[in-house]
């Protein structure tokens, strides 16, 4: 290294020292006390007074922009994320205890209570919404909502009807020979498509019996009929308000709740009872508005 370059280096170091002294503040930036001798460390709190070793609050505040941006991205994902559905046929023992999301069609819906009549359980029989599940076991599964969850489903009107397509997130319990889904929160069951195949067709008693094949195995709604008689524990006989001789049986009703002569509206499946050889309306009292008293 020649003399000229050594001299140049010395000049550069002196400039740097001068620059660093210029950086030192008159007041300690940490405790605010005066630093008239412009020392590198505060005489009171020993803080380094050069700004090189310091992070400004402004810089920290600006860095929160990244967090705000991240928050917006996460919220956008939460709103737009396409749900990942698991086919019912894929729910197996290896997925035991996992939370799964299923898109399914409701086949049946039932409600029962424990032996002390306190804890309500709602059970939905589901089938794969894509291929209908058919009669094979793999395409069907039961979903249980118990206790508080069942109560919430009913009270908040979140219960689906037969044929509805539902989106449900639940815990799978699967072992040898059994598979059940358990619903943890009522809000995790949503009806995404109201059933069209189970939509009720409006008709009166006379029209039903005049052309029964037109209504066979369809959900029908009789807007007005009169209870003619009560039979056994599950059947009532209703007649057309205009013609008392035209009657039809309604199956699945607790007759003790009704009186003869009452006007009612009835919703249910119109089916042919082959053993008895007659047409009847099969209702499920758990479904809302299955039998409604009008007077």
């Amino acid at each position: 290294m020649n003399n000229q370059s050594i001299k140049q280096m010395q000049i550069t170091e002196t400039e740097a020292d001068a620059a660093s002294v210029a950086d030192i503040a008159d007041k300690c930036p940490s405790c605010g006390r005066a630093n008239p001798e412009r020392k590198k460390r505060c005489a009171y709190c020993c803080t380094l007074t050069s700004p090189r070793e310091r992070i400004t609050v402004r810089a920290m505040n600006l860095s929160t922009i990244i967090l705000f941006a991240a928050a917006i991205v996460y919220f956008a994902i939460a709103v737009n994320l396409k749900p990942q559905y698991t086919p019912i046929s894929a729910l197996g023992e290896s997925m035991n205890f996992q939370h799964v999301r299923v898109l399914a069609k409701v086949r049946y819906l039932s409600e029962f209570k424990d032996k002390y009549e306190k804890r309500v359980t709602i059970q939905l029989d589901l089938e794969d919404s894509k291929d209908g599940g058919g009669d094979d076991y793999e395409g069907r599964i039961k979903l249980k909502a118990e206790g508080e969850v069942a109560r919430e489903l009913k009270e908040k009107g979140l219960l689906p009807a037969r044929g509805d397509i539902i989106d449900v997130s639940a815990t799978l319990f699967a072992g040898k020979g059994y598979r059940t889904l358990s619903l943890g929160t009522a809000e995790l069951l949503k009806v995404v498509d109201k059933s069209s195949e189970f939509a009720a067709v409006e008709a009166d008693v006379k029209a039903l019996l005049a052309a029964p094949d037109n209504f066979k195995n369809k959900k029908i709604k009789i807007k007005e009929a009169v209870i003619k008689s009560k039979r056994g524990n599950l059947i009532i006989e209703i007649n057309d308000p205009a013609d008392a001789a035209v009657t039809i049986l309604v199956f699945g009703v607790d007759p003790s709740k009704y009186k003869e002569g009452q006007k009612v509206s009835v919703s249910g499946m119109f089916v042919f009872y082959e053993r008895g050889g007659y047409w009847e309306i099969k209702v499920n009292e758990d479904e809302p508005e299955s039998v409604v008293v009008l007077n």
């Binding site: 991240a70 928050a71 919220f75 939460a78 939370h99 997130s169 929160t185 995790l188």
Partner: peptide, 14 residues
């Protein structure tokens, strides 16, 4: 139970 809830929670924390 669902990934959307997780992303919502992540956003809320941020």
């Amino acid at each position: 139970e669902t990934p959307e809830q997780f992303f919502l929670i992540s956003g809320i924390i941020a």
